[in-house]
Design a binder for these strands. Structure first.
Lengths: 116, 116
DNA sequence: TGTTGACTTAGAGTATACTCTAACTTGTTA
DNA sequence: TAACAAGTTAGAGTATACTCTAAGTCAACA
């Protein structure tokens, strides 16, 4: 799989994929005969997981640490990070519930005041 | 209420409050005899609402638009924005549910592989 | 009255995460 | 074989949102 296809599959632009390589978030890709990056299922999974972490609010530096723990097989560290991440996700869930509540009440009072 | 107290009440730093004023997100505060910004319940509510929108992922530019609609009394625009925001919040809720699921499964498989 | 802490301004600096440009090479199709 | 799309690099530029600095003013207390 070339970089353009990986970009399509993951929704991450080719620019960003090269950027992730540059900052050391992902390993330097192996290159084919013509010097083009070559990716497989492993990279596809990795990028999708990175996207999942990033979208749930983890900064790239922390994702980098997680990926590094994965690469060195540091399961303890990985488990710790995932557990901390779960806690954050649960907090986000509660926060959003609260924001939904506040927004819904705001909207309701807005509708009320404009119909009278 | 002076800027330091508003900062304490809202959790937004004095630097950031002045920044919000500078970018036009909030109006230039009235000043007391010694030139210090003076805030009341209205500003406290406004900043708390801004924090709520910001924390639920709305960029400052959009918040600015909302606040502007509020100032001009454009209830239609406000309602539209709030409804769009609710949709986004519901999407976020679903996303987080998904991320929780993925993370929990990741953690479970990690624990499994390290205990055997 | 002196010192401490909070306030003021304009403007510079920082952090995060891209995003784009220029100049070039390679692969595929008409 | 010409042209066009997609790949390569190093490095510059952008967007968002702060965050801090310098130099000064003001208010309250010992």
């Amino acid at each position: 799989m070339k970089i353009g296809e990986l970009a399509k599959e993951t929704g991450v632009s080719t620019h960003t994929l090269r950027y992730y390589e540059k900052i050391g978030l992902i390993d330097t890709a192996t290159k084919d005969a013509s010097g083009h990056r070559n990716y497989g299922a492993f990279e596809l999974d990795l990028i999708n997981w990175v996207v999942c972490l990033k979208k749930s609010g983890m900064p790239l530096e922390k994702i980098k640490t997680y990926v590094a723990a994965f690469k060195t097989g540091d399961a303890n560290n990985m488990r710790e990070m995932l557990e901390a991440h779960l806690v954050k996700l649960h907090k986000q869930q509660a926060d959003i519930e609260h924001y939904l509540d506040v927004t819904e009440r705001k909207l309701a009072s807005l509708k009320k005041s404009t119909t009278h």
